[in-house]
Design a protein around this nucleic acid. Structure first.
Lengths: 235, 235
DNA sequence: GGCGCTATTTATAACAC
DNA sequence: TGTGTTATAAATAGCGC
């Protein structure tokens, strides 16, 4: 028997989720976990076709971001989430509306591009379908997937529109989407959801807007009743 | 020897990172991985004191977010380059806006219904496709047409929204032909974008806001045709 | 849509380059 | 900070309730 060779490492050990004191170890962990986090985000977006925006600032100030389809559109979409009613700020109403509308157009434009691409691809598919004999089960199924995704894209567009519409409506009802000035805290709105994580965290109740606006069937009632705290959008 | 008891599950299996076809499995995976992702994000922010912003839109349109210290500051810090079109802050014509919105809502509602039907039919098609051997050329082509029409419907929706948006825009940007008054002109605003939806409208030169932010062709011809209860929006 | 269970697959803490 | 290795902690796919 060969002598038990020395372990090169003790392997992974359990750690507490709290700020890592050792600065060096901290940056190492940051690097590794950052990669892992982005990977997870990417996987989720692919597996479920979800739109994701992720921004990470390293302790040293460097910024990393991930976005699907792209970070900006995600952020734009996020900012467009329905502002909850019960916020007063008539002064910003118009400007807010303008901002909202600008974003709406932006979103539409982008969706339009995506649609254009899909359309093209769809035609190509159709064409190749016309001109070839490879219309066997396999290919057909493939087309179905393409189209399914396409359909989902479109449904997303619809949802976006509904969302935006709702936003305009609630804007109409009172609130405003203030300008995107700084990370300042707006006015004395209820800070119900002032979710902070500070230095120790309880993953269970952390900054997780869990049941955000869901405007289906363009039911305006839902918009009003949406559980979003709204202050997180700095109105 | 006891007989090998039945495994309650085969345990985890490796999966490819690609859109999960089965809608049900997809949403299950989404839920699980979403939680995992947020947890990882929270851990990273705590372990390394990093600022993190994470936004996830579920395939069904729900939004979830996580932020440390808070999503707003992260976004604010990150999006200092996203310019906002600067529009004036005029008095707005709420009545006109209400009309537009009502119209918009109406359109969305209808489109929504149509889409719902399409969706249902799409599923039926998919189902029969899965379960039968008739996945032949004909059927595939049918799907294509279905979706093509579907897409056009949506593009129309989009255009409608653009139109409406433009209307609101001009309302916003200028002389909000105050309510039912007369051809009054609040201030010396550019009359180019003059437009109104209230009592009478001139479809030809209306709501053409084509500079501030490339709004395609606008035709408000049918915008004002809506009666709207005017109070369902509590203006 | 969430919760629990189990068998595996992944992610990684600790170390070394 | 990026890489690579090892042993172990976590996450999670497939299923059931």
């Amino acid at each position: 028997m060969a002598p038990p060779q020395k372990r090169k490492s003790q392997g992974r050990k359990k750690i507490e989720i709290k700020l890592i004191r050792d600065e060096n170890a901290r940056s190492v962990t940051f690097s590794k976990r950052r990669v892992g986090l982005f990977k997870k985000a990417a996987e989720l977006s692919v597996l479920c076709g979800a739109q994701i925006g992720l921004i990470v600032f390293s302790p040293s100030g460097k910024a990393y971001s991930f976005g699907h389809p792209d970070i900006n559109s995600i952020m734009g979409r996020f900012s467009n989430e329905i502002p909850m009613p019960n916020l007063q700020d008539p002064a910003h109403n118009s400007r807010a509306r303008a901002a909202l509308i600008a974003k709406l157009k932006e979103a539409c434009d982008q969706k339009n591009k995506e649609l254009e691409n899909k359309k093209r691809r769809g035609k190509e598919l159709e064409a190749s379908f016309e001109g070839s004999v490879l219309s066997n089960e396999k290919l057909s199924r493939l087309d179905m997937n393409e189209l399914q995704g396409f359909k989902e894209k479109l449904e997303k567009l619809r949802d976006d529109v509904l969302r935006m519409t709702a936003a305009i409506m609630s804007d109409n009802a009172g609130p405003s989407m203030s300008d995107r000035a700084g990370p300042s805290r707006p006015m004395g709105v209820d800070v119900v959801n002032e979710q902070l994580i500070s230095d120790q965290i309880n993953p269970t109740n952390v900054a997780v807007v869990d049941e955000p606006s869901r405007v289906k069937e363009i039911n305006l009632a839902n918009v009003e009743a949406s559980p979003i705290p709204a202050d997180w959008l700095k109105l």
